[in-house]
């Protein structure tokens, strides 16, 4: 119990003091996961919308693969990205292994199926006649899709939150492709694992509190955006 109380008081001291190393780690986490989520949204929403709206042969198979991808283990993603980025791997010439870019790549792969799958589900949830109605009012394909995404925006925000939650909290991929290098690729989750292993529970607790806090702040911001015009 003392361990916990000591750890907590120490952790809050670190946070309130704005310990530069802790802040640096938090900032890198936010940048990597924020960018990865943003890229996943950029690609995943149009992709999900198409999958949800357009019928083609093999659509169910593609949807099934994407839905399965939502549960992709970060460790497996880390392994595959490592193989590709390894010096002797197919993308080794890019020299991205153990860089923040490598973390972003791995996290995009984790977040993309989440955004795509949930977007497809959100669009399919809408009344299928709405698309006919929009086309019947003279909407181009693009205009109709944008309008349908607007109609599904609550679910889309939920998809964004789920994607951010998945990447900010993963440790396996970041550890494998980032390498947990101080001042370079150390993020909140990998640092927590390291500090816990070393027995530095105060630092580990501080990092965890920051991780939970960060997740909460981002989710809350998205929730406020999501609910801003919801009136009874």
């Amino acid at each position: 119990m003392d361990l916990l109380l000591d750890g907590l008081s120490h952790a809050f001291a670190l946070i309130l003091r704005g310990d530069p190393q802790v802040m640096e780690i938090m900032w890198l986490s936010l940048r990597c996961s924020g960018l990865a989520t943003f890229l996943a949204i950029l690609a995943g929403i149009p992709l999900g919308a198409r999958l949800g709206l357009i019928r083609f042969r093999g659509r169910r198979l593609v949807l099934g693969v994407i839905n399965a991808g939502m549960g992709l283990p970060p460790v497996a993603v880390g392994l595959f990205v490592s193989i590709f980025l390894w010096r002797s791997g197919p993308l080794g010439f890019l020299d991205l292994m153990y860089s923040p870019a490598a973390i972003v790549i791995a996290q995009v792969i984790i977040a993309l199926p989440v955004v795509t799958g949930l977007t497809a589900a959100a669009v399919q949830q809408l009344d299928p006649r709405l698309l006919l109605q929009l086309r019947g009012l003279g909407a181009s394909r693009r205009q109709a899709t944008l309008q349908l995404l607007t109609e599904a925006r609550y679910a889309l925000f939920a998809a964004m939150m789920a994607a951010f939650g998945a990447v900010i909290s993963e440790v396996g991929a970041s550890m494998m492709v980032g390498g947990n290098l101080l001042h370079r690729t150390r993020v909140l989750t990998t640092a927590t694992v390291l500090e816990t292993g070393k027995g530095n529970f105060d630092i580990a607790l501080a990092l965890s509190i920051l991780l939970v806090g960060l997740t909460f702040v981002v989710a809350m911001a998205l929730t406020l955006l999501q609910q801003r015009e919801r009136r009874p």
Binding site: R129, L132, Q133, G136, L137, G138
Partner: peptide, 8 residues
Amino acid sequence: RRRMATVF
């Protein structure tokens, strides 16, 4: 389609 309109 932009010369027409539909009501369902």
